[in-house]
């Protein structure tokens, strides 16, 4: 099927719905982000399950992260992550220089305050994907100039 546009539109609607549904008492961004993140989490779990059906077992954590940066990102966003960095202690930074959920919004600092809510779903997507591959993590995102953004994955070991 041809269409990413449909997903983009749906994503925008989901974001705007969640923003409105939360706004009664606590307009605090925390709740909006959490809700969007949870939505993404479920989707991420499902996607990874479908996606790795026929693939061999991953060697290690780094192998899993590479899979997220290449295959997973390509199927969801039609491009790979531009840069993957790690401190080899469980923190990974995934940088996307043209993140698709932001490209339609701005390329610069305009609307920067709205950027976080367009990233929360994707954070959840990554966390959900990782969790189904047996990795517990916390995923956050930051933007300094749109449409570039960085996702930080912190692996939780217990």
């Amino acid at each position: 099927m041809g269409d990413e546009a449909l997903f983009e539109f749906l994503h925008m609607e989901v974001v705007s719905y969640v923003c409105h549904s939360v706004q009664q008492d606590d307009t605090e961004n925390g709740k909006v982000t959490a809700k969007l993140e949870n939505l993404g989490y479920r989707v991420g779990q499902g996607l990874v399950e479908r996606f790795t059906r026929d693939s061999p077992r991953f060697k290690d954590e780094l192998d899993v992260m590479k899979f997220i940066c290449k295959d997973f990102w390509t199927s969801v966003f039609k491009k790979q992550i531009d840069n993957l960095r790690t401190n080899h202690q469980g923190v990974y930074v995934l940088q996307d220089n043209r993140f698709r959920m932001l490209t339609q919004i701005s390329c610069g600092k305009q609307y920067l305050e709205h950027a976080p809510k367009f990233l929360a779903f994707t954070c959840g997507l990554v966390r959900g994907g990782l969790s189904n591959l047996g990795i517990n993590s916390v995923v956050t995102a930051e933007v300094s100039v749109m449409p570039a953004c960085k996702f930080q994955v912190m692996i939780q070991r217990s």
Binding site: M1, D3, L39, V43, G46, S75, V76
Partner: peptide
């Protein structure tokens, strides 16, 4: 798989919604 995944992304997101 790629093509299929994109439609699955949509239907899964819709389902979550």
């Amino acid at each position: 798989e790629n093509k299929k995944i994109s439609s699955e992304l949509f239907s899964l997101t819709y389902g979550a919604l």
